[in-house]
Amino acid sequence: MHIRPHLLLRGEQPQVPTGYNLISLMFGNVTYASRSVYAQRSQMLYDHAKEVAGPSGLVVCADDITDFGWQEPESSDASRKVVIVNEGAASAVALLGVIRLVKFLAESSSFGNGHQVHVVVDAGTGTTAVGITLGALLLGLSWKVTAVTLADTIEVYREREKTLISEFERVQKLDLPIQDSSYSVDRILNWVDRSQPRKFGKVLNGEIERCCKIAQQTAVPLDPMYTLAAWDLAASLSLDKSMNTEVLMVHTGGTLGMFGLAQRYPSSFSSNQGVTMLP
């Protein structure tokens, strides 16, 4: 099957693309959307999909695909089929991949066999956090999930959680315990604000340097937009001797964003900066 990706990126194409821009240009047909257009994500994606599909094409959303086939009328003569994948792959279909990750982790000696596990993950769209929660629920694991919110209020994330779970139940034909149960989504998943709230995309003083030091000391690459927030919370929880649980941080990526930050803050990546051991 031949699949041709079309990617919509917010902002303007840089003169010299690096990081996410470079990777996107390598693998997809990229269209740059103005910030005002990108603000209406759903409409933007649908309009672009219709344009790609053409007058006789078929446009569907990822959650409307079942059994890796297309839900289309038998009489459909669509010559081009286009599927819309939401920003951050925020869809019920994406949850299946995260649940598979949970199953893989649960089969290990460190996190399976009845282990008490506290999972920490950063939350862009929140899809990964919801997927981990559903995986723990479906597999009967003694896990707790804490998601550090990055781009919206906790109330917005909770609404998105309900939407994702509702779509997952519809697509998978399940009826999951959401609340009012000793073992439910509400008992497993907890949303918290990052320790230093800010507008998404803003970098605070010292954060890039901290990411560099953590990489030098642990070989774990972090970025200040996403994974640093989860790292800080996971590190704090791991020092709590009163907790009889394993602390597991799920690394969601984000490291390519450091390329853009290196252009904005070159002094933070000076080769002669010293290494100070973290406490």
Rank of each mutant, 00 (worst) to 15 (best):
P177M: 07
S76C: 11
L174V: 02
P14Y: 06
D175K: 13
A136N: 09
Y183N: 13
T66H: 12
L134A: 08
K241N: 13
S24V: 01
D232V: 10
G126K: 06
W191D: 08
V192P: 05
L261K: 09
R10E: 15
L248F: 02
V93I: 12
A234D: 02
Y183E: 07
I3H: 08
T252D: 07
L164Y: 05
Q71H: 13
P279V: 10
G124M: 06
H48T: 11
L204F: 06
V37G: 01
G131T: 07
E12W: 00
E169L: 05
G131F: 00
S181D: 15
Q71S: 14
T128E: 05
S267V: 08
E169C: 14
S195M: 10
G206N: 09
G131L: 04
V185A: 06
L139Y: 10
T252W: 01
V30M: 04
D64S: 10
I178D: 07
Q263E: 13
M277Y: 13
D240A: 09
V130W: 01
E107K: 12
D240H: 01
T227Q: 05
T149W: 00
V83D: 04
R4G: 07
K162C: 09
F200I: 05
E207K: 06
S56V: 02
F27P: 00
G206F: 02
G201N: 12
G201H: 11
Q116A: 12
F111G: 02
T133R: 03
C212K: 14
